[in-house]
Amino acid sequence: MIEKLFLYLEYPFVRYALIVGVLIALCSSLLGVTLVLKRFSFIGDGLSHVAFGAIAIASVLNLTNEMLLVLPVTILSAILLLRTGARTQIKGDAAIAMISVASLALGYLLMNLFSTSSNLSGDVCSTLFGSTSILTLSGREVVLCVVLSVVVLAIFILFYNKIFAVTFDEDFSRTTGMRTDSYNLLIAVVIAVIIVLAMNLVGSLLISALVIFPALSSMRLFKSFRMVTVSSAVLSVFCAFFGIVISILAGTPVGSTIVAVDVLAFLLCYSIGRATGGLAA
């Protein structure tokens, strides 16, 4: 088993997959707590469908670099969704549902009408569930992923205290003179970038799982924001690593395997939390 793993590690595409997978898992776990607590989880879901629609358009237009279209479109939608969501909760939810199913349907329709590929359902499936595209990353894509991950990580660390404040009590933060709207915007943009990144790894249907499960698991165990954040990051990296390794050895789809490991970790944390009443702060 181990030998087989080392044999695989000789191949650059396996190493790329591990590096990119671990980085994406790290980034996506960071904002999980904020997303869950601000009831933004829906936005994550909606955005991933928008990204799917954008990919469909990009492939119809035969763009060589999909990212150039997908990233701006997703960021723009994130900003729009946050705008409507901030006003009233219900309208925000409805808007998200509308945009997300509309882009899903349009995306599929476009691919169906214009696709030149002989394996259409395979293409759609891999966009939705990630499939093996992570094992076919080119050097350029890896570099892009690494750069974006580092940017996301840097932003998160630099704005950690602000993200905590706007997540915990937005009104209070505003009274201290903080520009909360700008920070909400920043959060939305970062979420959009993370989602576009994570499309490569787990596909658009499973992204929410990658963002939310590590945060939910950690919230079972820890009681301070910092510990929950650190633990989410560690847990997410761990799950992604094992998910990728298992999928390579067992030949299972990468995205679903990672999510399955995340779900297992959640169940474990849930039981531990139940049994001990949570670890120390």
Binding site: L37, N161, A165, D169, F172, M219
Partner: peptide
């Protein structure tokens, strides 16, 4: 400012220290 109701959701993980420190946002 001490709000009438803080709409903190019941599972928000935050320690007393972290919350008190967040009062310095404006100065930051």
């Amino acid at each position: 400012y001490l709000p009438q109701q803080t709409l903190v959701q019941k599972d928000f993980p935050a320690s007393v220290e972290e919350i008190v420190l967040s009062g310095f946002q404006g100065r930051l």
